[in-house]
């Protein structure tokens, strides 16, 4: 018995939209969202708003905080303090925790390689057809932990950098 027949048998009115007659199964449940809109203008408008804000931010920042240019490169420098860009902070901080030959190779190369391999393999590590972060807690917790570790490492790096003598 389809939904329509059931509705009819129970004395309810047929659904307003004929599209809802489609029988929803495990296979096709994610074929089409409940509510859709045309890509143009709905999504394009929102994308445009974000893009415009970003461009304005870039323009304002390029005068408010001009792109940095330190002194010319000097291989014989002894008083320069090298610092990575902020998006490498967490990685740089991680290197502090791995002293000695074997551990440096482990921390600087092996761990990131394993992490990247895991990233590539992610769709096959988490295959259950469940999408909500609440309903797959293990993956969500791992993801939150990764973000937490990255943020904490960045925080450590920032505190180390601002506390460095002469900075």
């Amino acid at each position: 018995m389809t939904d329509v027949q059931k509705d009819f048998a129970q004395g309810r009115a047929a659904p307003a939209k004929p599209k809802d007659e489609e029988v929803i199964t495990e296979e096709n449940v994610f074929d089409r969202p409940d509510e859709t809109m045309g890509f143009f203008p709905g999504q394009v408008y929102k994308d445009g708003v974000v893009a415009t804000l970003l461009l304005i931010a870039c323009t304002v920042l390029s005068y408010a905080a001009p792109a940095p240019l330190a002194g010319p490169a000097d291989t014989a420098s002894v008083d320069y303090v090298p610092r990575p860009e902020w998006f490498f902070f967490f990685y740089e901080q991680m290197l502090m925790f791995f002293p000695g030959y074997a551990l440096i190779a482990f921390g600087a190369v092996a761990i990131p390689t394993v992490f990247i391999v895991l990233l590539f393999a992610l769709p096959w590590l988490d295959r259950a057809p469940v999408y909500s972060p609440v309903r797959r807690p293990f993956v969500t917790i791992v993801g939150v932990l990764v973000i937490f570790v990255v943020l904490m490492n960045m925080l450590l790096a920032v505190s180390r950098i601002i506390n460095f003598p002469g900075q």
Binding site: T36, M37, Q43, K46, D47, V50
Partner: peptide
């Protein structure tokens, strides 16, 4: 231009 896209989380997909 006129492909249907999900509506509710549009700001997320920007």
């Amino acid at each position: 231009l006129y492909e249907p896209v999900p509506k509710r989380g549009a700001w997320l997909y920007t």
